[in-house]
Amino acid sequence: MQHYLEYLQAYGGRFVDGTLVTIQQTLLAALLAIFVAALFGMMRLSEKWLIRGTSIVYIEFFRGTSLLVQLYWIFFVLPLLGVTFDKFTAGFVAVGLNLGAYGAELVRGSIEAVPKGQYEACHALNMSYYKRMRRIILPQALLLMLPPWGNLLIELLKGTALVSLISVTDLMFEAKQINGTTYLSAESFGTALIIYYLMARVVVSPGMRAFERYWGKKMGRI
C-alpha cells in the first residue's frame, strides 16, 4: 500500500494529464458520434434510394471494419490522399465516426419503434415532414434510445484507449509510458483500469440515467 502511494505520488500527475486528454477525446468523439448518428440514422429511413444507400454504405463500412484499422487509415493513409489530420483530431474523428455508425442504427431503430398511430395522427393533422419529426416523432424516439445510448457512450469512452496507438497522450498512452520506464505493470495498468471504470460507472452511467429521468418527465411518462 505504502508502495502504491509512493507510485501515485511520483506518477499521479501524469495519470491526471492522461485522464484529461481521454475526457477531451471522449467528449469530442461523443459530439461527433451523436451528430453522425442522427444524420445517418434519419437518412437510413429516407425513401430516396440514393440517400438511404449512402447511409447504408456508411453504417456497413464503419461497423464492418475494425476501429483500429479505421484509425490508422485516417491518420496514416488519408495524408497520402492529401487530407491531413493532427493526431489528436484523427483520434476523436475515428472514434466518433465509428461509434456514430452504431448510433445511427439506434436512431433508426427508435424512430421505427414510435407507434404507427403517431405518424397517422400527424398526417391527419396535416403536419409537414419536418414538423412531424421535430415536434412529435424525435422527442419520443429520444426517450426510447436513451438507455442504449448510455451503453454506446461507455463503449466510446473505452474505445478512445485506441488513440494511444497513434501517440495521442491519453490515459492509456501515459500508462504505457510509465510502465515502460518503471516496469511496474500491475500498478500502471491497474491504475488505468480503475480510472476507466470510474469514468464509466461514476460519471457516464449516472449522468445518462439522470438525463433519462429528466426527459421521461418532460415526455409525460409517469
Binding site: 407507434p115 398511430g117 403517431q118 397517422e120 395522427a121 391527419a124 412529435i136 422527442p139 419520443q140 418532460k218 415526455m219 409525460g220 411518462r221
Partner: peptide, 9 residues
C-alpha cells in the same frame, strides 16, 4: 382514430 393516437408528451 380507434386508438386515439394522442401525443403522449
Amino acid at each position: 382514430f380507434q386508438h386515439f393516437n394522442l401525443f403522449p408528451h
